[in-house]
Amino acid sequence: MKSPFMTVLAGAVTSLAMGTAVAQSDFPSKDLSYIIPFGPGGESDISARLQQEYFTDITGQEAVIEYKPGGGGAVAWSQFNDMPADGHTIIGTNLPHIILQPLAKDVGFETDDLNNFYFFHYSPDAILVPADSPYQTLEDLVEAAEEAPGSITFSGSGTYSANHVAQTRFDELAGITTTYIPYKGTGAAVTALKSGEVSAEWGYSTVAANHQDDTRMLAIASSERHPLFPDVPTFQELGYDLEGGAYRGMAVPEGTPEEAKQRLSEIFGEINQDPEFVERMQELGFFLVDVPADEVDDFLAERRAEYEEVARAFDLID
């Protein structure tokens, strides 16, 4: 077995001798460890699994998915910079998690510790109601909330999560008060919705896609309507400036060579252009975005400003 050290050394020698262009085509020279900081079966897992086969098509190497769950992702993120930094280890990163978690408490990592190189999609926030709900439009729901402040209950996945952020921001935008009830994961949140325990759910378009039969999406927080739901208006169309959701990207450990990072950004950018990949992602309700390595900093700064405002509303920061 070749030791990682030798591989790095060999890689370094090659790139020195033959210049970056050749090194790029040599990279990746072995299978990629793709760490998912959650358990299997969630959206982070599913979207990574969809990337897998296109990664092999492009590079000839496998992207091997490894789960390292715990602490809502914090366990894996806080230990990630100890991983081998030769470009063959990457980790899935999620917004708002990697911004809100360090803001809220000491989780063993800072947002800037994560060396993100690409953000490839997001699950737009969405309001879902059961198919037999009396609320036909978003206005119905807002009116009900105005009549009896706090009585409208929303299920959602976790506290300080994308769902929670969306609920807080929308309450502010619409000037209403609703009750957010956190559940363990999207599955539990949608179960609560279907059983009628809550009035509505702050979920994602992906949840609506998987549960089309017995739920109805009232509005979606994407920039334009989703191809899968041409009849569902965006929040912006309805006059609420709400756009966002759970963004997913990838990071490399601190100290990874810049060329490797750029090459990874290119590879995953290429996957994002594959028409078949695009179709399969849309089919599941995702919304693709392209934030390559050079644009990641600006993108994160924008998001951070947004989330800090919400964090103030949560009383997480002053």
């Binding site: 030791s3 990682p4 050290f5």
Partner: peptide, 8 residues
């Protein structure tokens, strides 16, 4: 793999 054997 062991940090001591990773050469860093």
């Amino acid at each position: 793999p062991g940090r001591w054997f990773q050469g860093m």
